[in-house]
Amino acid sequence: MSILARIKSFFGMEAKPDKEASQEEVEKVAEEKAKPRIGYIHLSGCTGDGMSLTENYDILAPLLTDMIDIVYGQTLVDLWEMPEMDIALVEGSCCLQDEHSVHELMEVREKAGLVVAFGSCAATGCFTRYSRGGQQAQPNHESFVPIADLVKVDLAIPGCPPSPEIIAKTVVAAINGDMDYLQPMMDLAGYTEACGCDLQTKVVNQALCIGCGTCAMACQTRALSMTNGRPELNENRCIKCGICYTQCPRSWWPAERINQDLGL
């Protein structure tokens, strides 16, 4: 079954456009739809992605109580056996030397309808790409890969962490079956080898850079600056999260959505 059909069948609805994640809509959705079962799987990440989720104070209470059921997650649910889930949010990359992580990820793929790489560690490996092992408590833990290297990923939400806003927008779009909004996340599921140097190879080298500065603005570690109208990467600061290229207006261009959001 296609990912579109799968999401739609989970929520028993057809795709429809949706403008904003407003309080009213959140409540409306909460009343109308069966609650999707969500699991939160924590691999090698810092919990920053989950914390960013909880920063959606205004919609968090109705989200957790009325809109979704959290059915699995360390510290969230008192359950050892992984249940069937509609959506699994996976935070963190997967350590190849840690058999528990590998098994858990495999099991997630079996038990979850949709697997979401939630945050850049899961999506691109991010910071954990630099791991070279040789440290306590497990000196042989050295190989950390984006989860799409091991299992099929349906959606990726990069960010270190993803902003509270993109999380809210994505949740509401998913529950509303707004597939147009989610399309870029489906496309980004294939973007697993990210680096600040993508700006050079995929934008500047391709005669597409216009020197707007969006990449440098978006960089979450200030690894980028603008020199003579072009991004300049400080490799020592780059964590390979992929946000610079993801936000670049010359990587992909969601024209219809922007016009819709602006009322144009």
């Binding site: 960013s52 850049s120 939400i157 990069p158 960010g159 270190c160 993803p162 902003s163 509270p164 806003e165 993109i166 927008k169 870029p184 216009i210 020197g211 707007c212 500065g213 969006t214 603005m217 978006a218 979450q220 999260c241 946000i243 993801t246 936000q247 670049c248 207006p249 261009w253 969601p254 959505r257 922007i258 959001d261 602006l262």
Partner: peptide, 24 residues
């Protein structure tokens, strides 16, 4: 903003993946 800059800003507002508390 010139047009390309407006596109970077509007894309960030519609899809603020790694950009927190700026879009609004």
């Amino acid at each position: 903003a010139i047009p390309c800059q407006s596109m970077g800003i509007r894309k960030m507002q519609s899809y603020p993946f790694g950009v927190r508390h700026l879009a609004d």
